[in-house]
Design a protein around this nucleic acid. Structure first.
Lengths: 121, 121
DNA sequence: CAGAATCCCTGGGGATACTG
DNA sequence: CAGTATCCCCAGGGATTCTG
């Protein structure tokens, strides 16, 4: 039988976890964050136009905005290359790469989900 | 040096991964999905009002809608209890629990993120 | 208690055109 | 090429009230 302290401790750790989820999702909210991060994790380094082509459906406005969000939070880095037509490379920061387990879990889940949908038809 | 087939295979697996992310996020899009799932994973079984109280900031309309979304996709179950004032219990389905690794990763990341923010101040 | 209904409104986000 | 600027629209979502 649980005493009050144990219950309070459990309550507290719940809140911690929920708040942790809230914190993470704060950085990853938005329609395109996961797509961008996933794409950058796979390709390692991409230019603006590459991302535009790679991420199906996104427009330049949204891409630009989402990239800024991610950069502000130090999840990705932006490097301007001095080429004739100017070029910008985006890639995950070391910090950003700590998100890889999350992205991988999401991708893995999606793959088995699709399999299970196919099987049940 | 990579030959064309290898490159094509890599390209293909990229698309698969990106599409998998898209698939997963389709089910989990919306402002409150992760909070609800996290809360249900922790508490195992909760009534509507409990969720309303537990999830800070959500309103009954959004909660109701998000719960329906999750139920439609068989991630949670809805059970009506025949008590005097009617009562409804929500809990993760077995299928829904397969999302636990994702939720856990997100929570873990949020916890270390908060720690790193505190340390760097 | 569990929600549906109603009202309302901000901003997320799309399409297109423009610039350094 | 890498965005910014503009216009525009709707749906996501909040607050409140109502009902079985």
């Amino acid at each position: 039988m649980e005493n009050i302290e144990v219950v309070e401790t459990k309550e507290k750790s719940c809140k911690v976890k929920i708040n942790a989820i809230k914190d993470t999702m704060q950085l990853l909210s938005g329609k395109w964050k996961f797509h961008i991060l996933g794409t950058l994790l796979i390709h390692n380094k991409l230019r603006f136009t590459d991302l535009l082509r790679e991420i199906d459906g996104i427009g330049s406005k949204m891409l630009s905005k989402e990239l800024q969000d991610l950069e502000i939070n130090h999840l990705i880095s932006r490097t301007v290359i001095n080429s004739k037509p100017i070029t910008v490379e985006y890639e995950m920061t070391q910090f950003g790469r700590t998100l890889e387990p999350i992205i991988d879990e999401i991708a893995d889940w999606g793959i088995s989900y699709r399999k299970s949908v196919i099987e049940n038809n």
